[in-house]
């Protein structure tokens, strides 16, 4: 298995570029879904100590809405779409307004419908991200049904620790941010896409990108 701590700048940059291509496709899909302009951030490839994951992405106790999918095939990986709980609520309002034409405030939307809408947003964002990557490196893939959770950031990120913790003490993550104008003027809502490649899939990825 590739030792992630020894990756050189070129290899990390290649992984970041993969994130960039995935993010572009995800932004296009989200834009189509919400009929709004989406701003995307330049993705970062990050090597993070598994002991510091909770703090790395913000306040570990902050409540977030998260959608998780697992992709299997040539390039096995997991993906999380994470938003502040308030931003997730606005995202749900935006989606439902777009679908039904009328605005329904979040506290009048039944819990199951909220989760269903959130998981749909996550599913579209994450599967577009994955489609672009797999097309680029020429691999087949299957995506799981999305799982949704609302909880403390550090509890959610335990899942990363359990993937990378078995192999060592560092996780390799590709982190990017999408943002969209909220319902109120001037208010922006955003979501993070975190790509968690399976440690044993990184070698294949780097070989396909011709940097290993």
């Amino acid at each position: 298995m590739a030792d992630i701590a020894s990756f050189n700048a070129l290899q990390l940059d290649a992984i970041r570029e993969v994130g960039n291509i995935g993010t572009g496709n995800a932004a296009t899909a989200l834009s189509g879904l919400l009929s709004r302009m989406i701003h995307m951030d330049v993705p970062k490839t990050e090597l993070v100590s598994i002991y510091e994951l909770g703090e790395h992405y913000g306040d570990p106790l902050q409540v977030v809405g998260a959608v998780f999918v697992r992709s299997t095939g040539g390039f096995g990986c997991s993906l999380i779409f994470i938003q502040n709980e308030e931003d997730a609520d606005v995202m749900v309002e935006l989606l439902l307004k777009q679908q039904f034409g009328t605005f329904i405030p979040i506290n009048e939307i039944p819990e199951e419908m909220k989760d269903s809408a959130l998981s749909e947003v996550g599913n579209i964002v994450l599967s577009s991200f994955l489609n672009a990557i797999n097309l680029l490196i020429g691999t087949q893939h299957q995506i799981s049904v999305p799982g949704v959770a609302h909880d403390m950031l550090s509890s959610i990120l335990d899942v990363v620790a359990s993937i990378y913790g078995q192999m060592g003490e560092t996780a390799l993550l590709v982190n990017t941010e999408l943002s969209v104008d909220g319902l109120e003027a001037g208010r922006k809502i955003s979501g993070h896409i975190i790509l968690i490649p399976d440690p044993d899939a990184l070698e294949l990825l780097l070989k396909r990108l011709k940097v290993m």
């Binding site: 998260a66 998780f68 509890s155 959610i156």
Partner: peptide, 9 residues
Amino acid sequence: MFALPGASA
């Protein structure tokens, strides 16, 4: 934290 119906993870 997450349950993915049908997925083996």
